[in-house]
Design a protein around this nucleic acid. Structure first.
Lengths: 340, 340
DNA sequence: TTGAAAGCGATACCAT
DNA sequence: ATGGTATCGCTTTCAA
């Protein structure tokens, strides 16, 4: 910047003014400075800026699992929003480890990001962020709410979505509906289970714990669980799979069966419409989730001091076939649907 | 840091030494400083560090399209490698726009990242990076090679993979094999087309341009192209779809046909094994691509000054069914496979 | 409208 | 082994 100043024959402050588009610079001076900048191919150093301003032109992004397509869409939406404001995203993945989530968030704070978007790791507490929050750092939680901290949160309406899914199956005559979900320490998993229970309760049906499996998703466990369900004296005629990975794992497992239950999955996935039968889902929108979170963050950055809000985004039922299979008329076993 | 120094009753330089794990600090002093750091909950400011060192503890990541699951795996692998070295990734997506790629890269340079990983946008030139490269900034290109610049590059062996795919179809008796790919301005698309031609040539077969479609992928265009192929006097008995999106689009389009050609796709995708028939693919490994690129970057960062290298990762053929359908015995039309 | 000088927080040099 | 001080590149303050 000194070089530019001498090249243009002005003081450094004037160069700074031009670079930052501040007023009170004569048009001719401005022009001369710009020319010097172009000649020297000068680019301001963001570290120095950050040091002086106390903040850098980036926001932090803490993900639970970066390999997930869900995360990809979330990140893309947040980045797009950030880039609108001339900011970049500094991101890291904590791979479902709460300690790692904490380290990552604190590392981002140390880098003096302007704000933080966090997808909480299962089992994490977030009070470690309260000093930063108190200092005015905007923090927005996405997909799962913070624990032990009050902060802006953007969620999918998991409970509502689950109710929609189960009601849909009930409307098609099912009375034995199984639940296949993830570890209930994950907020969304717990909410979806709660919605499942609520919908059954509302229909005056009992909750049969033999039909509920809430464990971490792995292809083998889903497969074994399904086998156990189908071996019951009164097997389920329908299945509610409470997340993307579980749905896909269930489809893989069911490929080996002669007869298949009806199925509604939470969260849409590529090629769902080409399955046999096509898979009915309750879709959420990761892009909107990210966009909403980022907008909230920037509102805070622009001075919004209103109390922390919690936004829940609605889900959308997409009937495609698998959720509209009727229960087998003669009892527990369900009809065969070729070829699944 | 000054606060910590006075709290511990030492000089700032000593605190700096302790923070950076430098030698020549008495154990007792080190201990006292650590205690002070913990008491004050001190965290060093990375902007200040960056200013002093001329670099920040982050690497830059320029993506072509962040929503793509391929990108997600790439990013995850690079981040994981970076986090091993205590670095974070500062990333942005340029959405297939060359100008945006340039802006993003330069913005990352201005932020004084330690190195850059770039997935080139179609049509971009990269000579704008040569001053930074000359100053010793490590830059690694992934998935597509740089244009007008010599730098480290990590690619999938697209040409080889295409040859494998087409040879596989030839081995199953096909002589009329169509090519469905992307715009040839994209390096991988051009390479795959080149591999397709080479494999046909090697088999002594003519290249029929009526069977080649190299256009940007959209569901509608793929569908129209396929319809045109199948309406030919001698329609193809097999299809080589040269990328993930094209393969999926082709599957959607074929769902409406009574008879389907054999199909081999480039790049694997979720649920390929549950299609009817299951889809044969030539798989690449985005994770390895990212990991290799990041390793190369850190080697450079650790002082490797050898000439720029170009690494090509092998593909793997996964036969699942769709690629093993024989050509229809009576001529052009292919046999029906339920239900596709 | 413009510029000189102070200082942001950390590190390197050089002295002790 | 330890600490004072200049310095990195920029912005702010204040004076001209």
């Amino acid at each position: 910047m000194r070089d530019v100043a001498s090249e243009a024959g002005v003081g450094v402050k004037t160069v700074s003014r031009v670079v930052n588009g501040e007023p009170d610079v004569a048009e001719s001076t401005r022009h001369r400075v710009r020319a010097a900048i172009a000649r020297l191919d000068y680019r301001p150093d963001d570290s120095a800026r950050g040091l002086r301003n106390g903040q850098i032109a980036s926001i932090g992004l803490v993900l639970d699992d970066a390999t997930d397509p869900f995360s990809a869409q979330l990140v893309a939406a947040i980045q797009a929003e950030a880039q609108l404001h001339g900011m970049l995203a500094l991101s890291g993945s904590c791979n479902e480890d709460p300690d790692s989530e904490r380290e990552l968030s604190l590392a981002l704070c140390a880098r003096r990001v302007r704000g933080l978007v966090v997808v909480p790791a299962p089992g994490a507490r977030h009070d470690y962020l309260s000093p930063y929050l108190a200092e005015g750092l905007p923090v927005v939680f996405v997909d799962r709410p913070p624990v032990a901290l009050a902060a802006d949160t953007v969620l999918t309406d998991s409970r509502g979505g689950a109710i929609t899914a189960v009601r849909h199956l009930l409307a098609h005559g099912h009375r034995r509906i199984a639940f296949l979900g993830d570890d209930v320490r994950i907020h969304t998993a717990a909410e979806r289970l709660s919605g499942y229970r609520a919908a059954l309760h509302e229909a005056g049906l009992p909750i049969d714990t033999d039909l509920i499996a809430a464990r971490p998703v792995r292809d083998e466990t889903v497969s074994a669980t399904l086998a156990a369900f189908m071996a019951l004296p009164e097997p389920p005629t329908a299945l509610f799979t409470a997340n993307n990975r579980t749905t896909v794992a269930a489809l893989r497992a069911l490929a080996g069966f002669d007869t298949v239950p009806a199925l509604v999955g939470f969260d849409d996935f590529q090629l769902a419409e080409l399955m046999s039968p096509p898979v009915t889902v309750v879709a959420q929108d990761p892009g909107s989730l990210g966009e909403t979170a980022a907008r909230l963050l920037f509102q805070r950055l622009f001075g919004d001091r209103s109390p922390a809000q919690r936004v829940e985004l609605a889900t959308r039922l997409i009937p495609r076939g698998s959720g509209e299979i009727p229960p087998h008329p003669t009892g527990g076993r369900t009809i065969a649907v070729p070829p699944f």
